[in-house]
Amino acid sequence: MVYVPPSPYSDPSKATASKGVLSHLEKAKEGDEDTFDLIEKQLEEQKDICSENAKVYEKLGNLGAASQYKNMADTCQRDLLAIKGIRKQGLTAPKFTMEMRKFAIVHSNPGLSDKLVEVEVVRGITIPCPSGVLSEQDLNVYIELEFPWPSDSAQKAETDKVKGTSNPGFNSKHQFDIDRKQMRSLQRVFKRQPLRCLLYQSRSLFHSPV
């Protein structure tokens, strides 16, 4: 995490300050742009992480933790505005230190309904060329998913096609319906038949189910 000195502004939302307050800051020097980029990037990332964690804990009903993360997000936003104000005036970047802090967080999907499960297909790794395909430049692959619920009518979805590589990045998310009132039945179905991922070259299956 990034910590910067206290803001030299009485109001960080305003990109102005008195000469007395900023008397310790000189004009920007060579290399300051990289320093400003680093600080702003870190603060933006921290703000996003804190805001997301606040949503997660609020969804779980832990208002204390949610409030803590909201306060940290607000602090990052104020620091970010202050840094941008200093940069706008062409002054040197303030000194800062980098510290690592660990927080206990809960990984969840607050935007996902209780009646849905989400499957993400990230990428394929070193896919071999099937018969009739001379090189990876001729590959045109996609993944078909078979979600074995309900047992008498599996749900299906497929990714977009990715051409010209043996390491395709699909980055594709798919949602399937479930019924939490029938969790035992769902567990039995998955023990007998797990999720199937079928790899296709155009319309020809050439790789064993995953």
Rank of each mutant, 00 (worst) to 15 (best):
residue 130 P to K: 11
residue 130 P to G: 08
residue 130 P to L: 13
residue 131 S to L: 04
residue 131 S to W: 00
residue 131 S to G: 07
residue 131 S to C: 02
residue 132 G to F: 04
residue 132 G to Q: 10
residue 133 V to H: 07
residue 133 V to A: 06
residue 133 V to L: 08
residue 133 V to Y: 08
residue 134 L to D: 13
residue 134 L to S: 14
residue 134 L to T: 13
residue 135 S to W: 04
residue 135 S to T: 09
residue 135 S to A: 08
residue 135 S to C: 09
residue 135 S to G: 04
residue 135 S to R: 06
residue 136 E to G: 07
residue 136 E to K: 12
residue 136 E to W: 00
residue 137 Q to R: 11
residue 137 Q to E: 11
residue 138 D to K: 11
residue 138 D to W: 03
residue 138 D to Q: 15
residue 139 L to R: 12
residue 139 L to V: 03
residue 140 N to V: 02
residue 140 N to K: 12
residue 140 N to I: 01
residue 140 N to G: 03
residue 141 V to M: 11
residue 142 Y to I: 00
residue 143 I to D: 04
residue 143 I to N: 05
residue 144 E to M: 11
residue 144 E to G: 02
residue 145 L to H: 03
residue 145 L to I: 13
residue 146 E to G: 04
residue 146 E to V: 10
residue 146 E to L: 14
residue 146 E to M: 11
residue 146 E to A: 13
residue 147 F to D: 06
residue 147 F to P: 05
residue 147 F to Y: 15
residue 147 F to N: 06
residue 148 P to R: 12
residue 148 P to G: 10
residue 148 P to F: 14
residue 148 P to Q: 12
residue 148 P to D: 12
residue 149 W to I: 07
residue 149 W to Y: 15
residue 149 W to P: 01
residue 149 W to S: 05
residue 149 W to A: 03
residue 149 W to R: 01
residue 149 W to C: 03
residue 150 P to M: 08
residue 150 P to K: 11
residue 150 P to N: 10
residue 151 S to R: 13
residue 151 S to L: 07
residue 151 S to H: 09
residue 152 D to L: 10
residue 152 D to Q: 13
residue 152 D to P: 02
residue 152 D to K: 11
residue 153 S to L: 12
residue 154 A to E: 13
residue 154 A to L: 11
residue 155 Q to G: 05
residue 155 Q to K: 04
residue 155 Q to C: 03
residue 155 Q to E: 07
residue 155 Q to N: 07
residue 156 K to G: 00
residue 156 K to Y: 07
residue 156 K to W: 04
residue 156 K to F: 06
residue 156 K to N: 03
residue 157 A to I: 01
residue 157 A to V: 01
residue 158 E to D: 07
residue 158 E to A: 03
residue 158 E to T: 04
residue 158 E to W: 07
residue 160 D to R: 15
residue 160 D to C: 10
residue 161 K to I: 01
residue 161 K to S: 07
residue 161 K to T: 06
residue 162 V to H: 01
residue 162 V to S: 00
residue 162 V to E: 01
